[in-house]
């Protein structure tokens, strides 16, 4: 019993220490002067690595999810003769919840894990240590552009996801199931608010971008420098960032749309 309590306490302390290390990493990576010697090339390369490479999975999943939403929504709504509200249902679901959340989960799986693995590999092959010996702070040169790139890329990916998903829903709803295109769009436009729905979705995506890349970069730096260590760190990135995204989504939804 006592040893169980002790173990619980130790786990708690480990978790607290982990949060501390992650916080220190973020602070050290973000604070401090911008080093122009690195130029914009590093950020561009990371945007390419994190953003452009994630585009395919985001677009394909977006179209499919939009199509499924339209199909499911239609079968429910048509019973009440309210299938013209399909556009409203699909767009609100996507903009408020599904878009940012699913895009963030895909982003964690695609880009987050790749970031962790890349940084972990750099650590294992002593590249980070070599940077330190050359006199470069790896937090500034490795962590900072990756964090920035993730934070920039995530809102973009989420909006692209929303767009292709709505287009996918149009494809199924209008072209296949025969919902009137005019009422589809006008219903959507009447119920979607720019500030409330579109912008809150952007804010959510931004917040998720911060959390997912932060976890990914931190896990990379914190990985045991062994092949095994990299693989556990990669797994941890995906698990932790998915959980963090879902938990934050609930919090943000409660703040943004909750009863006041």
């Amino acid at each position: 019993m006592l040893s169980y309590l002790q173990r619980l306490g130790r786990t708690g302390l480990d978790v607290a220490a982990g949060f501390g290390r992650a916080g220190i990493l973020l602070a050290q990576a973000v604070w401090g002067p911008i080093d122009w010697r690195y130029g914009p090339g590093l950020l561009l390369r990371q945007l390419h690595f994190v953003g452009v490479y994630s585009l395919i999975i985001i677009v394909v999943s977006g179209v499919l999810i939009g199509m499924v939403l339209a199909l499911q929504g239609y079968t429910v709504l048509v019973r009440f003769g309210a299938e013209s509200a399909l556009g409203q249902m699909v767009s609100l679901t996507l903009l408020r919840e599904l878009g940012p959340v699913v895009a963030a989960l895909l982003f964690a799986g695609r880009a987050g894990s790749a970031l962790t693995a890349e940084i972990g590999l750099m650590k294992t092959t002593e590249q980070l240590a070599a940077m330190e010996m050359i006199g470069v702070d790896p937090l500034r040169r490795v962590a900072r552009p990756r964090l920035l790139a993730g934070i920039i890329a995530m809102p973009i990916l989420a909006q692209v996801f929303n767009m292709v998903a709505i287009l996918g829903a149009v494809g199924v709803g209008v072209s296949w199931l025969g919902v009137d295109a005019g009422s589809f769009w006008s219903n959507m436009q009447q119920s979607v608010e720019l500030g409330e729905d579109v912008m809150n979705g952007v804010i959510k995506a931004f917040a998720f971008g911060v959390v997912v890349t932060w976890i990914a970069v931190f896990e990379g730096f914190d990985a045991e420098p062994t092949p095994e260590g990299i693989s556990t760190a990669t797994t941890r990135t995906v698990v932790y960032s998915s959980l963090a995204v879902l938990a934050m989504d609930f919090l943000l939804t409660a703040i943004m749309f909750g009863v006041d």
């Binding site: 002593e126 590249q127 070599a130 330190e132 010996m133």
Partner: peptide, 20 residues
Amino acid sequence: LFVLRERMGMLFQSGALFTD
């Protein structure tokens, strides 16, 4: 330290070339 390390060189076991 970063300033001081300019006066040191280190050859790592794995070489540690920057892969990119």
